[in-house]
Amino acid sequence: MNEFLGFLLSGVTVGFIYALVGIGFTVIYNSSGIINFSQGEFVMAGGMSTVFLLKAGLPLGVSFILAIMITSMIGIVLYKLISFSKESSQISLIILTLGFAIFLRGLAEVVFDKELHTMPSFVGDSSFDMFGTTLTYQSILIMIVSIVIVTLLYFFFKKTKTGQAMMAASINVDAARLMGINIKKILMINFALSAAIAAIGGVLLTPITSTNYEVGIMLGLKGFAAAIIGGLSNPFGAVAGGLVLGILESLIAGYISSEYKDAVAFVALLAILFFMPGGIFGNTKAQRV
């Protein structure tokens, strides 16, 4: 069995989840300048909602869709809180997102519970051998869904009027407003979109790692690290950042010790902030006059 390839593939699998969380950080940061520390809780909300809707007897597909909708609504609530807030400095809004994250964790603890939950995989729990290593169908699914999401997102930004308006708003807010773009609407879409993508990540990950009311803390941090590695202002940078982080973690857990796994994100985060504040692809924000 090819050990290295095995580590690599499982790194890519989690890496894609980090990427989905990281995309949300960049999309919100681009349009509002806010770092949304509730992003991890969106992942938790997606996974936990699906688990409990399933327990309530709903079919998997329906639970999945409902969970994404619920999480998008939570994203919109956060946007509303931010837009109604009298306090408009970026730092206080960032603290608001932190507070909202704590609130969501508390709410999940009350509405759901404190237990660890899992759910059946969408594609069965079986696995198969490929390239001398073992792959589960669930990780294949994660890779495929993530690639599809990223591709759709690319075409959305590039080819649709709303996507272009979102790009415009992230490059120059005032000019976007002069074009007749409703910035508040764009911001709301961004929060809903970020929440939805994170929720999908949460649902995909649950069969592999389980979920509980607290998983958002670590996943939020990993997604943030992915976004920072990618330069914070580029959703596709965050994808690369997520993959780099996932692979590093997996290799370190495999060859050194899984105790150090979570430290990777912290170290990567600090290293990037100290030595390459523009992310590994350089600072794209700086080129945006």
Partner: peptide, 24 residues
């Protein structure tokens, strides 16, 4: 309005800029 400093969407193409002009 053509704002001070032009306010172009620098990392979008010329054509995308023009198209955004027709957003309304």
């Amino acid at each position: 309005q053509i704002p001070e400093g032009r306010g172009l969407f620098s990392i979008l193409s010329v054509e995308e800029n023009l198209r955004l002009g027709a957003y309304i």
